[in-house]
Design a protein around this nucleic acid. Structure first.
Lengths: 229, 229
DNA sequence: ACTTTATTTTTCCAAACTGGAAGATTTCCG
DNA sequence: CGGAAATCTTCCAGTTTGGAAAAATAAAGT
């Protein structure tokens, strides 16, 4: 059953059907929504099936059980997210470090808007230790963060980002974008911030850059990247 | 039964007993913990009673029902929080605006550490619209935020805080402190950040100030407050 | 001490919901 | 058409749900 499903199914005599892919997709979308709203414990497989408009035993069929469905949903979110960041990095390969990071922040904000579950699920799972949290950290967070820490450090060396623990700085950027958008329902009422307005998104990204990357790249390293080895 | 319980009980013939206060406190603490971990829907009254080490019908007795218990728990968190902020403001009444805001950020970070539920509950409730979210916004968030928006605006006028929508700026500060601490379980594994270490807390507060309040107060307004009316 | 009230304990309920299994049925590919 | 893939229906045994009601205990108030 294709890359979407749990563990490759050895040698299936026949290829996966189109409708099956559609069903899996609907279940994944519904699962992401439900898990991000109510957490793992607070979500029932029946709730997910209902949101997907699908009979609940199909979860067993496609994903084996609730836990595997959760993992597939998390994969879905984080793989798409890291693709989105990678694409941004790729497109700005030749820009200066500050422009590259700025582009990444834009990508971050936009992805967080289209998929608020990215951050909600993290908060849900970080509430208390669990095997899922460990899995999430090892499989998705660490690899993603390692890359970013390096970028931040370089920006600090260039005087673009303020000094201090780069991991801390990165997490603040992360929360100012993803964390902010996850609060969408609250911000409208409490702060008059409308995250549905596309202009608000640019406003957020701009402010993050203004605040976290206030310096300018020295002329020496502006042309191409690599200055301090 | 005292200010802790739901709606004053007209004229009780006798005064509340000490053990009752203790029970209510235990239930509130347990409720805060449980609701912040699993959200309203994902938390059962029995789970709360168990954490409190108390028989579950006592919830009905003291708080009427699950919804009222949630509200009492939220009140408990937010009232203590706003007291903590008010105290900080009071103690630094005569300082310059930047020092005053810095002190408030310290207070914020420290409260968020001692009560991570402050932010967790917000994310939980902001997941989807609900009467609880509306109530929270109107009763606690709006009043609290109004004050802070004003402080931020003044700091922007003084050139201490970067320009832009003050509400946005404030929410970023809020997420960089409260939001960060709510992710404690994750940060240790993903970023090597140990929020149990008291030094980490100062590091966080320092960085927030460095990043969000980079400017210095002009000498003219440094002596006392009020410069621009 | 004795009555009255506040608080806790025990027991119960009816309903909804839990994750998952099993088998019948339909749809699609070759 | 034959067979595999996917879906639908039905069922289950058990737990959990929020809350009610009544019985028991502990603390005041006098």
């Amino acid at each position: 059953m294709s890359e979407e499903t749990v563990l490759s199914q050895a040698a299936p005599g026949r290829k996966q059907q189109q409708r099956s892919i559609v069903t899996q997709q609907k279940l994944l979308d519904a699962a992401i929504e439900a898990f991000s709203e109510n957490g793992f414990k607070g979500t029932s497989t029946r709730d997910i099936a209902e949101r997907a408009g699908v009979h609940h035993p199909l979860i067993t069929y496609h994903f084996k059980n609730k836990d595997q469905l959760w993992r597939a949903a998390a994969d879905h979110i984080f793989i798409a997210f890291s693709h989105s960041l990678a694409k941004s990095l790729e497109e700005n390969r030749d820009m200066c470090p500050k422009k590259r990071m700025s582009a990444m922040i834009f990508a971050y904000v936009n992805y967080a808007k289209s998929q608020p579950a990215l951050h909600k699920v993290m908060v849900q799972e970080a509430s208390y230790p669990s095997p899922r949290l460990e899995w999430l950290i090892e499989k998705h967070l660490k690899p993603l963060f390692q890359v970013t820490f390096g970028m931040i450090e370089k920006l600090q060396q260039l005087g673009v980002a303020p000094p201090g623990n780069p991991a801390l700085l990165f997490n603040m950027i992360r929360l100012s974008s993803g964390g902010l958008l996850a609060l969408g329902n609250e911000l409208a009422g409490s702060s008059g911030i409308d995250i549905e307005n596309p202009e608000t998104l640019s406003e957020i990204a701009d402010m993050i850059i203004r605040v976290f990357l206030p310096g300018e790249v020295p002329a020496a390293s502006a042309a191409q990247k690599g200055a301090a080895a």
